Structures are given as C-alpha cells and as structure tokens.
Simulated assay, not measured.
Amino acid sequence: MPIYLNAASHGLPDRATLEAAKTRIEAELDHGTVLSEDAAQADLARARTAAARLLDAPGARTIFGTTTTQLWQAVIGRLPLNGRRILVSPHEWGANIRHLRHLASILDLGIDVVPEDEAFDPAAWRSRIDDRTAAILLPAVTSIEGLLYPVAAIGALPRPETALVIVDAAQALGRAPVSMEAGCDVLLGTARKWLRGPRGTAVAALSPRAERTLGTGAMALEARDFNVAGRCALGVALNACLDAGVPAIAGRIAELERDLRGALAGRDISGAQVLAAAGAHAPGTVVLSVAVAERDRIDNALREQDILAKWSLPATEEPLSRLAQVGDRAFLRMTPHLYNRGEEMRVVAGALAGAGR
C-alpha cells in the first residue's frame, strides 16, 4: 500500500463507506435504478440528517451536490450582481475567481480583493463593506497552506441584508470546526477530502437570509438526479466523522503533522524549505518549498518509495495569493489523515532527504 499524503485532495474512504456504495450498486444491478432508489430512502434520509448535523443546519436547508464549485456556482448564479460589488479573499479558489472575472466582463460587477496581509483581520473586511456589497467570499481553510480564516468574526460583521457571507469549507469539513453557527449565509464543501466521502459528493447549507436573497428555498438548488450509491456511501462517511468527532480527528491529524515536521527538521533536502505554520492553521498540512529545478528529482524519489503527495499549482488554485507570484519555486503539499502512521512520516522524510544525494 502506498504512503498516501493527499487527504486535502482526495481522502481515502474507509471500508464501510466503500461497502455502502458497493451494496447500492449491486441493488441497482439486481432491481434496476428506480426500485433500488426506493429501497434506499432510509439511507438517503440518514445521509441528510448527518449532513445537517455536521453543518449545524436544519435538514430542509441542507443540500447535496457533486463538487464545491458546482454548489458555489448554483448560489452565485442566483445572486443579484449587476451594479454590485463582491469582497473576495486572496485565497479564494481559482475556479471561483475565473468565474467572477467572467461575470464582471458581462455585468456591472466590481471585485474587491482584500490584500493578503490584511485578509485575516476582520476590520479589513468591515472597512470594505458598503451598501453595494452583494457577497463576501472566503475559505474556512486555505487550500495550499491550510490557514484558518476567522470565519465567525467575519460572519458577525454588520452588512446589508442582501450581502451574503459565502464560505468555502472544502478544506475544513472533517478536520476543523466550522458550521452555520459561525454566521455563514452559505456554507459549502466537497466531501471527498477530509470527510473521506466518495468522489462526486458535496454538501451545503443556506441561511434564511440566503434563501430570501436568492429568491428560492435551498432545495431548489439541489439536483433531482444524483448518484444514489454515492450519496448513501456519503452518509456512512459523514456518520463516521460525527461518531469519531472532529476534535478527535483533528487531534490525531495534528500528531501526524508534528511527526512529519519533526522528521523533516534539520534535513538537507536539495535546498528545500518547510513553510512555517504561521498564524492559525488547520492541522495536517505540511508544505515543502523547492526550487523548480529540483522538482523532478524530488518527485522521482517519492515515486520510488511509493509515496503519493500533491504538487500544488498556486497560479491555478489560488491565483490571487502571494504563492502564485513565486515563479521559481514549486510547492509540495503533504496532508496525512487517520489511515497514516507516525513511522510513515519518517519514511517520507528519509525519501526527501535522499533526493538530494
């Protein structure tokens, strides 16, 4: 089995989650799509109840989708944006930024990016909110470095009734505390990362303010056609997370991060640098900054040891962040989860150190 350090992209589902999907696929083979979906109603209801508990929202305002981007676009598509402004985090996901730029090219829409050196200060956000503000967009946890945004403090800022706080929680759900209680109007995220759900599954919750502003109930944003096996399996993953408890999961992931940082400390890795976990950050993200010229050498060393991690692409993933402006460095993001072991972190450090020899 490879040493898998890419939970922030695709966490590995546990056996119970995969077995739940298998059971539903076999039911479709035996009974067809319609009858098998009818038989799955109890499991589907349990999935919605679990999602609502995780997001701290009523089931009637908790919805499912396929990806964070799909749910985010469904919300943005209903916002009244002409003649308005949107406040945006410098760590907003790249696909969202590209979509907003397209909208700005066809609408009278202003995009106000909060500078990175002020982005974690709620006062900087407050000073930019005015009557034209249509939305405030930020991640709960940043994609590359795992930095924690002060969601509750930003969500508590005074704002116009129709200005929605829309939080991308893809990197938070399952490893960091975030819920609708933080003052979000829309909270959404994919389930395939830290929640270890199946691919093609995502969850979201809307506040009453969001429903009024969008002019529709939350359920209108949920597609009627969906993968029954995937959603039933998602319910199993969500309940596993709830049973274990996010604080306990986060604690174990933090231990693995400390193990990895400790194993890397003092190692000579071809001039590479471990980015410091500066400020508040979610557990489990270790980023190695390496010279672009050394990337292939390090990548080959990891592959030889059957180690899987993620080479982040800041210009694509976080195009407004400072990392996107650094053209001569490559960034290796390593994100362990519950299925990893402390001794694996030492193997990884050894492989990285050996890459420079």
Rank of each mutant, 00 (worst) to 15 (best):
Y4E: 12
Y4H: 12
H10Q: 13
G11S: 05
L12I: 14
P13N: 03
A27Q: 13
A27P: 01
V34Y: 12
S36M: 05
A40D: 01
D43F: 03
L44E: 02
A45Y: 00
R48G: 04
R53C: 02
R53T: 15
L55A: 07
D56M: 12
G65L: 08
G65M: 07
T69Q: 09
Q70W: 09
G83L: 11
R85T: 12
L87V: 09
R98T: 10
L100T: 03
R101I: 04
D112S: 12
V114Q: 01
A119L: 02
A119I: 10
P122K: 10
A124K: 05
I129R: 11
T133Q: 08
L137P: 00
L138H: 06
A152G: 03
A153T: 07
A153S: 14
V165M: 09
Q171I: 02
A172R: 05
A176G: 03
S179K: 05
D185E: 08
D185L: 10
G189L: 09
T190L: 07
R192N: 15
P198L: 07
A202C: 07
V203L: 15
A210Q: 10
A210W: 09
L214P: 02
G217T: 15
M219I: 10
A229I: 06
C232V: 15
L234G: 02
A237M: 04
A244Q: 14
P247V: 08
R258H: 13
D259R: 09
A263T: 03
L264Q: 04
A265K: 14
G266M: 05
S270G: 15
A272M: 06
L275P: 00
H281G: 10
H281Q: 14
V287A: 01
V287T: 14
A293H: 10
R297D: 04
I298M: 13
A301R: 06
K310Y: 09
W311T: 08
L313Q: 14
E317W: 08
E317P: 01
E318Y: 04
A324I: 08
V326S: 07
L332M: 11
P336C: 07
R341E: 13
M345N: 07
A351N: 06
G354A: 12
G356C: 12
